[in-house]
Simulated assay, not measured.
Amino acid sequence: MNSRIADRIATLVFWAGALLVIVILGAMIVYILYHGGKYISWDFLIKPPQVVRAGGGIGPQIFNSFYLLFLSMVVTVPVGMLGGIYLAEYARNNKLTEAIRLSIETLNSLPSIVVGLFGLLAFVNMTGWGYSLISGALALTVINLPLMVRITEESIHGVPDSLREASLALGANHWQTICRVVLPSAFPGLVSGAIITSGRVFGEAAALLFTAGMSSPALDFTQWNIFNPASPLNPFRPAETLAVHIWKVNTEGLIPDLRRVADGSAAVLILVVLGFNLAARWLGRKIYRQMTAT
């Protein structure tokens, strides 16, 4: 077998693998949207679920998911960016750096259920917060922080050294070069990484079962005092997210319109996660074109 035939065979194998993944993913998306898309309506998106009679929706679960996403990203993005900047610009090749990278890789490969059990011990029991939004947000931070660090580090490494050298040659110090040259050049990758990380947060369920809880109190959306137990902005209340709601509805089956709520919730979750990923690609390309004038 000559090299040309081997190259064609390898190319066909790679194309076949890629097409197989696309077909499987497309079939799953079409199946979920076909069975759940017909139940999506405005009332379904804003009403709370009904336990006694049919006709409920997923309004509180959607709000809890986005609020939990906000609380988690408030911690994940700045800490992850600072860690990535340190590894990319300041860290030297020594045992400390190797230990940090090993810790990041280990955290990045931990099953989410293990992080949930850690969150149950550290954030739920030891702090006394109980099942709450803040406990779930910190558990999700543990999951997504290694990814944000790696994305920041890789984005900074992608900036040409010539830009750094030009900035230093003009009299800027290292920190000024990072803030005014490196980070703006790496900004498209940082934005894409943050949005992709947000999509992971929205679809997480296992870690939240042990931290944020599997139920939500009756929320009063006219109450904006964050210390009120009925306030939707209270970070110390338990909160059932959309992903947890799908698991709970399918396992317990206590509501009369089980199939409608489960299928509709799954379709909404798929659309939101797809929206995060498509937004990341579109926004990253748009920012890159604006910054490079191409």
Rank of each mutant, 00 (worst) to 15 (best):
I22T: 14
L25C: 14
G26H: 10
M28W: 15
M28I: 15
M28D: 12
I32V: 15
L33F: 07
Y34C: 02
G36L: 13
G37N: 08
K38T: 10
Y39M: 13
Y39L: 11
S41V: 01
W42V: 02
D43E: 07
D43Q: 11
F44N: 01
F44K: 01
I46Y: 09
K47G: 00
P48E: 04
V51R: 01
R53L: 05
G55F: 04
G55W: 02
G57V: 00
I58W: 01
P60N: 05
Q61R: 00
Q61N: 07
F63P: 09
F66I: 01
L68K: 04
L68G: 09
F70N: 02
L71S: 02
L71A: 01
L71T: 03
S72T: 12
M73E: 14
M73R: 08
M73H: 08
M73F: 08
V74K: 14
V75D: 08
T76Y: 03
T76Q: 08
V77A: 02
G80S: 04
G83N: 08
I85Q: 14
L87R: 01
A88F: 09
A91Y: 14
R92K: 13
N93E: 11
K95F: 10
K95T: 13
T97N: 12
A99Q: 11
R101D: 09
I104S: 11
I104P: 14
I104C: 13
I104F: 11
I104L: 15
I104M: 13
T106C: 02
L107R: 08
N108V: 05
L110C: 09
P111N: 04
P111F: 04
S112C: 04
I113C: 05
V114N: 12
G116K: 11
L117D: 07
L117C: 06
F118E: 11
G119W: 02
